[in-house]
């Protein structure tokens, strides 16, 4: 034993060498297993002893889980793909640029070098950027288990509440899927106390505009509730309207009413709702200009 303090509590460390091995460990363990991906949330929690797993299952050496694929049908990102790698991927940049923008708001480059897309989504922090974009894009998460094989679930089923998803204890997230359909464009923007912090409010917007008229809109917000929320009144108000500065103002106004929010140590609920509205109008302005 070393004569120095250990921050995490003791655990058994298992470095899985394949998806099958990881799933077997998850299926057979009777103790509490924590999957270790980027470790940028899990190891923090263990250092603070807010998490005290009996087993840490390291998936970093599992081959085949870090794939990055993007084309005009969207981006399919392997759970172990690092944020920093996806951020620099040329095909993601071309087909799903909003994903690059959203990733750029996760912490700092040093943190993104380790952060994985699967870990980020599995962690389900209610202020986290990617769950919001996933909600806006009607994205899905693929899960696998030893006994039941693979299943793909929509964002609405996946995200349940703060740090809580529909993932069963024996399941591994294997990929996160951001689908694109013809005519849709997406964008993300947020306000954080400092660059790199979790956002006070972060808005994702999707628009399908034809001949200057908004055919369909999708708007989601993170940082305001226990999971990403879609602003359906804002979406409904935009459909069929001219994509104009007046519409952006209207949408912002509705967002400020519809968006849930509560007070916390940083800002008031009122301020959060105001930020959500401002972000909606900023995104509208930039997306309509770019059209």
């Amino acid at each position: 034993m070393k004569g120095y303090c250990m921050k995490p509590g003791p655990f058994r460390y298992i470095a899985a060498q394949s998806v099958e091995e990881a799933l077997d460990v998850l299926a057979s363990a009777e103790e509490d297993v924590a999957i270790l991906a980027g470790g940028q949330s899990l190891v923090s929690l263990m250092n603070l002893r807010l998490a005290r797993p009996d087993i840490v299952l390291d998936i970093n050496r599992v081959p085949g889980l870090a794939t990055v694929q993007a084309d005009d049908s969207g981006a399919r990102i392997g759970a172990l793909a690092r944020a920093a790698v996806v951020e620099r991927d040329a095909s993601v940049g071309r087909y799903v640029p909003a994903l690059i923008t959203a990733i750029g708001h996760i912490g700092h480059p040093q943190v993104r070098n380790r952060t994985t897309i699967g870990g980020n989504v599995a962690h389900a922090d209610p202020s986290s950027e990617l769950p919001g974009l996933l909600a806006c894009m009607e994205g899905t998460v693929t899960l696998a288990s030893a006994s039941r094989g693979a299943r793909e679930v929509g964002w609405d089923e996946f995200f349940i509440s703060v740090f809580t998803t529909c993932k069963e204890p024996d399941e591994l997230v294997t990929s996160v899927n951001f689908p694109m359909a013809p005519g849709w464009r997406y964008a993300y923007d947020e306000v954080a106390t400092r660059h790199g912090d979790y956002p006070l409010a972060g808005v994702s917007m999707g628009l399908r505009v034809d001949g200057g008229v908004v055919q369909e809109a999708r708007v989601s917000v993170v940082g305001v509730a226990d999971r990403p929320v879609r602003l359906s009144s804002v979406e409904a108000a935009a459909a069929g309207q001219d994509a104009s500065a007046a519409l952006a103002r209207d949408m912002a106004g509705i967002a400020r009413t519809e968006c849930p929010a509560s007070d916390d140590a940083h800002v008031s609920a009122e301020h959060r709702r105001w930020l959500a509205g401002t972000l909606v109008s900023r995104l509208m302005a930039s997306m309509v200009d770019a059209a």
């Binding site: 940028q40 040093q110 943190v111």
Partner: peptide
């Protein structure tokens, strides 16, 4: 020791990472 301050940053295979968040 939870990834925020950067004091512990080292290079692992040439990439800057927080050494307090790796085993």
């Amino acid at each position: 020791e939870h990834g925020v301050c950067g004091a512990c940053t080292v290079l692992v295979d040439d990439q800057p990472v927080r050494s307090c968040l790796m085993l």
